[in-house]
């Protein structure tokens, strides 16, 4: 789990570094970033309500603030916002948000606002990368930092799968089907990307996804 959380954190750091160092967000999907902010805000509503550990609270805070930062850069920064590929980033996010919400309203562990929003965030996270993957496919020369960002982000839920297997074996009664199935789907969505990422990495070439 620690490795999963760290790759998640690194992915965000890599993206912030890329944007800040190159003053460019080309190849980065604003739609995916906005979906992630929605995921973090709806999942971490309990930040001030239930306390698990200082570690958890800090990470929640970092995830919300950093994704807000990235969105701020992409929308408001004089130089960076000019480099956003708005014409290419056309994924219809309503097709991800509404089905996730409806599914959360129907399939959840407890019928309460907080629980439904939490479940919604789990469902939405599993598909939030899709606009970014579509944009990558449309981008001819994907820069290394952007592809590293997506690779790290994909590795994160993959490592969580190992964490869940471990916890399932060591903790009595540890079951969370909603999270597991969504996590499996989330990792599966990256399979195709992983294949081309590792292929280009082995050949020492820039990544370009076939259309």
């Amino acid at each position: 789990r620690e490795a999963g959380d760290m790759t998640h954190l690194f992915s965000i750091i890599v993206l912030l570094l890329k944007i800040n160092a190159t003053k460019s967000c080309s190849g980065v999907s604003l739609k995916t970033q906005e979906l992630y902010l929605l995921v973090f805000v709806t999942r971490y509503l309990d930040l001030f309500q239930s306390y698990i550990s200082l570690y958890n609270s800090c990470m929640k805070f970092i995830f919300i603030v950093s994704s807000g930062c990235i969105i701020g850069y992409m929308r408001k920064h004089k130089v960076v916002s000019q480099t956003y590929d708005a014409e290419q980033d056309t994924f219809r996010v309503a097709f991800l948000v509404w089905p996730s919400f409806l599914l959360a309203a129907v399939i959840n562990q407890k019928l309460s606002v907080m629980e439904i929003l939490w479940t919604f965030s789990i469902y939405l996270e599993s598909v939030a990368i899709l606009p970014q993957l579509v944009l990558l496919q449309r981008t001819k020369n994907v820069d290394n930092l952007t592809s590293n960002y997506v690779f790290l982000l994909g590795s994160y839920r993959g490592l969580y799968l190992l964490n869940w297997i471990y916890r399932c074996l060591t903790e009595e009664g540890y079951r969370q089907w909603i999270v597991w199935i969504s996590g499996l789907l989330q990792t599966a969505i990256y399979c195709d990307f992983f294949y081309y990422y590792l292929k280009s990495w082995r050949k020492n070439e820039r990544l370009s996804l076939p259309s």
Binding site: H8, N56, F63, Y174
Partner: peptide, 10 residues
């Protein structure tokens, strides 16, 4: 009833 591990991941 909330289980001890519920929502304890990120």
């Amino acid at each position: 009833r909330r289980k001890s591990w519920d929502h304890d991941e990120l």
